[in-house]
Nucleic acid binder design. Sequence first.
DNA 1: ATAAATTCTTGACGAAGTTAATTTATCCGC
DNA 2: GCGGATAAATTAACTTCGTCAAGAATTTAT
Lengths: 399, 399
Amino acid sequence: MPRSAPARAPITSPAAATVFTTVLTQGPVSRVDVARRTGLSSAAVTKAARPFIEAGYLEELASAGRTAPGAGRPASPLAIRPDREYFIGVKITGDDLIGVVTDLRAQIRVARHHALTGHEVPHVVAALTDLVTELLGSRAPDGATNFRDRAYCLGVAVSGDVDRDSGLVRYSPFLGWRDVPLAELLEDATGLATTLENDVKALTVAEQWFGEGVGASSFALVTVGTGIGSALVLDGRLVGGAHGVAGEIGHVPVAAMGPDSPLCHCGGTGCVEAIASTEAIVASARRVAADPALTMDDAVSRARAGDEPLRRVFATAGHAIGLGLGALANLFGPERIVVSGEGVAAYDLFEDQIRRTFAEQAFGSAVRCGLVIRPLPFEEWARGAAAVAVQSLFVSDRL
Amino acid sequence: MPRSAPARAPITSPAAATVFTTVLTQGPVSRVDVARRTGLSSAAVTKAARPFIEAGYLEELASAGRTAPGAGRPASPLAIRPDREYFIGVKITGDDLIGVVTDLRAQIRVARHHALTGHEVPHVVAALTDLVTELLGSRAPDGATNFRDRAYCLGVAVSGDVDRDSGLVRYSPFLGWRDVPLAELLEDATGLATTLENDVKALTVAEQWFGEGVGASSFALVTVGTGIGSALVLDGRLVGGAHGVAGEIGHVPVAAMGPDSPLCHCGGTGCVEAIASTEAIVASARRVAADPALTMDDAVSRARAGDEPLRRVFATAGHAIGLGLGALANLFGPERIVVSGEGVAAYDLFEDQIRRTFAEQAFGSAVRCGLVIRPLPFEEWARGAAAVAVQSLFVSDRL
DNA sequence: ATAAATTCTTGACGAAGTTAATTTATCCGC
DNA sequence: GCGGATAAATTAACTTCGTCAAGAATTTAT
């Protein structure tokens, strides 16, 4: 008789999923508390929690921190055992693969970069499989258990038009792909259950479950860099768009009324991206500095040094972003917006203007929308992919 | 023993609600078809449908129109009996009350206008109660049964910040109200179960169930007139906004980058409403015509007659609206957008430009978003209120 | 100690929907 | 006009999920 595979997370009913996600995302919580937060009866929580404890996914904490000063039986909070299962997340860009191993809480344990030397599908699949093998064979700095025995799920993030349900890359401009069944190919190559998602949406999932989005019924994540994108979560659900398009804040027209509106790749005019993308900023900076070889780094340091025309370039970009956020907040009314981006270096030049413009444009109580602005480390994209893999435990059926 | 009240719609389980709404919104459907569309088993449909038939809400049609040409037992489609229950809808504006009686399908049977002579809460409640009494006592042109015996629900639509769940008017600029528990007051005064909703959201509900929104998982409704507003339905749910603000397309900044951006009441700059509201159009028209007494009607007729500067005023407004729609479509990717408005008279001057701008600005497959542009009859607002009342059959518990 | 409070557990119960077999009603070929 | 094919509708047994209510466990307060 062959050795049986280790038990997987026993998600057998809606209640089981609810209880597990609550403990996963809201830290240690007593059963009664889970019941209160979810609306389930406490009996249901007890029943749903047991299999998770038996399978090693949850544990009972000896309620050390005594939160309840009154009488009564003390609570024994449920806590996740993050090392019970590991997840692989890979972000594919045009130039490289970034891979991570995370635990159940999507905390990164190991990270690896590989250069991507070609864009043909079989080549990418092979390179990604190599990366996965390397990640599975690696050991965490803390010398944790071998990942291989406890990793079953792979999450992959790609920019462009991606259909999570079918595991299809519909269109990826960076890779030059159309309708590639990537999830299936990777599943065959790696043996791992594979979930594919758009990169910004993946990042948003990570935020929703393990970041600023925890506890917010609705929020938006905006990424600023080469492109400007966003994704929205409403009522705990990622907004998909009827035709696959959603969250294209980069193509919200904020400057399309004047006679000298900038043109955008997308064919539109006055898009946020035509003003505030890295490329657009560099172009503007070169123009005002009358230096066609100026780089982003040059522009940043000269602006920091007080170069007024260059400072205005960044302020204009910040203004455009703030207007985009205003449009988002007025239309959608999220509880919170997280603005994150590669161009970490230049945040000090943006942030003020973004906040000021947003405050001016937010209508009525939309100003109460929390605005978090912060850098975006590179592995974060891969972490997003891993978070999607974690989430796939709950809704895994490919269509 | 007192005569028992007539049985109400027997909505006792999720399946019952699903079946009933399916038949209500998708016209006559056979049980198998309902099962296919909803994912329920056909046994469940049979069970859920029976009580509705017994209570007179649904009936079985003798499958006259033979849709299935093959063999087999012919389907006996389920159809709604629209006259089984009537609903009252009232829209409150600053100047008048518009009230309607509708059937279950939210078809208007009778409509009445009353002038509103004051804005004090008791006065409005009394006037509205009078209107309701008059509506209930009226008879439809076709001499239908007395409404009074079969009307139990009242829907009320008000512009401004309205909390449907608590039945509270948080803030109404036109009435000068703050935190008025209108639903409760009207329930006491009329004896009808009362649901309160923001006017644009109410209109959207009507559209979602009985108009263009049927069958679309997501869509938006935009109203153009004195103000410019919108509401979104995503996954069948009306987007509320974490802080009560959502759908404020009128305050999406589409012209806030240039030096001569128009100012808006809201404190922002370059809002759609600052360019395309009735007021803004009249102001622009007066400027270009150098005639401070010009009216909207004058402007429309002169533009129609070929006055180029005035035509450009309307085109500019249409452009601004198109940009707002572009922002909406790029952020949410709805399946359809309905643009509707009071300024019916001027549609021919807008429509082209709206469509052209939208087509330019919609990103990728967002262009596939259907755009319906059409006038908005006055009673439509009250019909929206009635539609909310119909919907309250399903989710009626006040918080 | 005894009582009160609070968490957690247990087993019976009930609601809701599914599966699978059955009945009903029509069309089709002969 | 009759038997068979075919599909819709119904029925009854069963499964699943979660609630309810009672009680066990474990603490503080009197």
